[in-house]
Amino acid sequence: MSFLQALLDFMGLGGRLHLEWISSAEARKFVQVVTEFTAKIKVLGPNPIKGWQGPEIPDSLPSIFEGRALGV
């Protein structure tokens, strides 16, 4: 497994993305080469990134705050 695939796997994007490396014209100006070690992600198949619609906030949640409830 390549470095980036391992990282994507950790973030839950394992095996779903095709990666393409790009380099920028400015890259040479960078202090070191690694700064341009940057991935632009191309999507193959179902795209979980587009699928992200924001967090699902659950209805009930134990609060660690002890507030006064209704009618008390």
Partner: peptide
């Protein structure tokens, strides 16, 4: 040196695949 730094003309770093 870090494995991610390759000096010289080759500015784009391909991840090594193992």
């Amino acid at each position: 040196q870090s494995p991610f730094s390759i000096l010289g003309e080759n500015v784009t770093l391909e991840p090594m695949s193992l």
